[in-house]
Design a protein around this nucleic acid. Structure first.
Lengths: 222, 222
DNA sequence: GCCAGCGGCAAACGCTGTTTGCAGGTGTCC
DNA sequence: GGACACCTGCAAACAGCGTTTGCCGCTGGC
């Protein structure tokens, strides 16, 4: 086992059993690699924070803390150097397309077999991307898709601010939580509005909500 | 056929065939009653506008123009005297419960047989309410439920304003569309914020979005 | 070294948003 | 017929929001 030991993975999934299965799959593929398991978005962020150079993040879409796609958006924005492969129980084209638009490097339906998963992971590790071959990512869904494009141009801090806007916080409150001045927050908000092509914080929140609202009703089932 | 002729129904459903079936069911039940068929939320509102004293509105949840539950909310607020029975393809307890919380007088899954539908309609026409007997409307879902309660305290004009807020409009734009002064709109917004228990228009929009977002992805499937 | 981009800060300006008090209208209930 | 509650509409004063301009330090790439 050569420099596999320098590889570091993070497996983020709600379900401990599936998390373990993914770990084993990766261990077979990269013996000796470091693998961290987490069960919430918060833990995933903490893990990426602690360990600067993670080579791949396997991310469950339905994990606690991820409000639809916004969790993916957040992680992609905060840790741009970390490739993300979404692992999800759902596998409809719309979900997959949106994940890819938000910067995922791959999408693996949970229904797939181990061999396919292995192939997908190694393909992404080689710098490529991977989506199920039997899914057509054709049409663009115009609006939501264009919005996703714009969202991906936001800087990490801007994404943090946008998500706080989406919670209805005042500029002052955001400034406090981020430990910066209100003037800075205003600057960020202005930049966000321009990038999203909207004219008020409320419209920005609406636009973000349209993206982050997945199709499952995880918020209800909870 | 006695005073059945004074009865007036509105059947609002996306699907012409199902609309016709509902019409026939009602005609059998109340021979000679007036029945209007509409296919969009807009037309439904126009019909209720034109005809002040409608005795019952049969409403499809997935109709064009109804964003989730907000269409129901709107109609209930604008025409408080018109009982609404929701007719929907979905039939999970959460959907039913929320419809009832938003002021529906009944909920009829489309899977039901004609006799049951007839019974449901006549029960509501008699001043009662009706939901599928095999569904438990038990628990409260705390947050969303409390919000629905608060939403139902809004006046017709306030609901109109809230829905425009949800589109990201400025007070000035709302004032123009409602043909009132901006000062009035501001007053309505303040009242809405108080009734919803939130502190800014953005938070109000977020709260409303949580309600109106159903579980189907009608916005995507479109 | 230099440039581009990100993050942070400040002050000032105009506009939007929020609160508050007030008034006309409608309907209801004694 | 009052008294009352409620909805709607309005205006003025104040707080928050969004823009602009200009500035600084840092980092990473060329």
């Amino acid at each position: 086992m050569p420099d596999n030991a320098t590889y570091h993975f993070v497996v983020a999934d709600d379900h401990p059993l599936f998390r373990g299965a993914l770990r084993q799959t990766i261990e077979l593929l990269y013996p000796g690699a470091g693998i961290a398991e987490v069960g919430t978005l918060e833990d995933a962020a903490a893990e990426l924070e602690r360990h600067g150079e993670v080579d791949l993040l396997l991310l469950d879409l339905a994990m606690p803390g991820m409000r639809g796609f916004s969790g993916l958006m957040y992680l992609r924005a905060q840790y741009q150097s970390v490739p993300v492969v979404v692992v999800s129980a759902s596998e409809d084209a719309g979900t997959i397309r949106r994940c890819m638009e938000l910067g995922a490097s791959g999408f693996i339906p949970k229904s797939l077999g181990i061999e396919v998963i292995r192939e997908a992971v190694s393909q992404v590790m080689a710098g490529g991307s991977w989506t199920p071959p039997d899914v057509d990512l054709g049409e663009a869904d115009s609006e939501a898709s264009a919005m996703a494009q714009r969202l991906s141009t936001l800087t990490p801090q801007q994404v943090r601010v946008l998500m706080m806007l989406s919670e209805g916080l005042l500029n002052k409150q955001i400034a406090y939580e981020l430990a910066v001045s209100e003037a800075t927050v205003k600057a960020h908000v202005s930049a966000i509005l321009q990038k999203l092509g909207v004219e008020s914080r409320t419209q920005a929140v609406i636009a973000a909500a349209k993206i982050e609202q997945g199709q499952w009703l995880t918020a209800e089932a909870r």
